[in-house]
Amino acid sequence: MEHNKILIVDDDAKLRELLTRYLGQQGYVVDTLPDARELDRKLARNRPDLMVLDVMMPGDDGLAVVRRLRAQGETVPVIMLTARGEDVDRILGLEMGADDYLPKPFNPRELTARIQSVLRRHHATPALAARHESDEVIEFGEFQLNLGRRELLKNQQALSLTTAEFAVLTVLATHPRRPLTREQLMEMALGKGNGESLDRSIDVHISRLRKTLEGGDSPLRFIQTVWGYGYVFVPDGSERE
């Protein structure tokens, strides 16, 4: 049985030691870094299945790191640790491309649950993938969403999505023209109940998806807001009546 590899990037030595021991007991293979200086080399030599990244670090902070990685096309799932206790840090992390966040201090059990949730999405778990054939492709505009291969193509060129963005887009695209509330998207795409995360986190994932799908001068709007309710996916991108 192959064990998932987790990379912890945090300048708190005691926390790194605690998480290494605890996650190791849960069956994960854990590696750590005190800051981001050696991160690129680590990703190239021994790429993890998931990275836990602290926001507040010496040198490049976690927000700058995840923004740079996503700009480079790096898709490794990222859970950000935020210490300030302010929603703005969590939202910024999601806007930069993080898949989830966890405020400090936290119980290691909670981190383990978040890791399991993100990895399930990343590996196409039954919650989303079992309902679809392995070769099912949803086409809209210039895009092809391949559910089995978990990739989004534009004119046959692969686009970079986080695990959360792919999950949200999959739920929307498999329910075309059906308005979905934020709570439904939270549960169906991210496996979270209404009290587990901010409604705003769904808005951030939608915003990033729109930039990917509707950039430039295109008049098409595939993900449309249903005011006072949520969002709806319109395959032809036309305005809803």
Rank of each mutant, 00 (worst) to 15 (best):
E239W: 04
Q184Y: 02
F166Q: 01
I8L: 12
L111G: 02
Y101M: 05
I138L: 11
L159E: 15
H122C: 10
I115Y: 00
D11H: 13
Y231I: 03
Q26R: 14
K104Y: 03
R47K: 10
R114D: 07
I79W: 01
P77K: 05
L145M: 09
F233I: 00
T125P: 07
R84N: 15
E239C: 11
L18W: 10
L119N: 05
A98T: 03
R208Q: 09
L161A: 03
V78F: 02
I79Y: 04
W227Y: 13
F106D: 06
D87F: 11
L94I: 06
L153G: 04
P235G: 04
L153D: 03
L94K: 00
L23D: 01
M51N: 01
I91S: 07
N46I: 09
A124S: 10
L159W: 07
M188S: 09
W227A: 13
F106V: 09
V55Y: 05
H3P: 11
V55P: 02
N155W: 14
R178G: 00
L180Y: 03
K154S: 14
I206Y: 06
R21W: 11
K211A: 13
A36E: 02
L147R: 01
T163G: 08
E139S: 14
T162L: 06
Q72N: 11
R221Q: 12
E38A: 13
D61W: 11
L43S: 08
M1R: 11
T75G: 09
I206H: 07
R70T: 08
G62R: 03
H205N: 08
M57W: 05
E86C: 14
D203F: 13
L213T: 02
H122Q: 12
R68M: 11
G195Y: 15
D203R: 10
A113Q: 12
Y28A: 07
R21Q: 14
L19I: 05
H175N: 15
R84D: 15
I79G: 01
E74Q: 11
L102S: 01
Q144P: 07
D203S: 15
M80G: 00
Y231G: 00
E86Q: 15
L152G: 04
R67D: 12
G191P: 03
D12I: 07
G191C: 05
L220G: 02
L147A: 04
H123Y: 15
V226S: 11
E74A: 12
E183F: 06
F106A: 08
L15Y: 06
V9C: 05
V88H: 12
D10F: 04
R41M: 13
S218K: 00
E196A: 13
L159S: 09
G27F: 01
E142M: 12
G141T: 06
E86P: 08
L209M: 12
D31K: 08
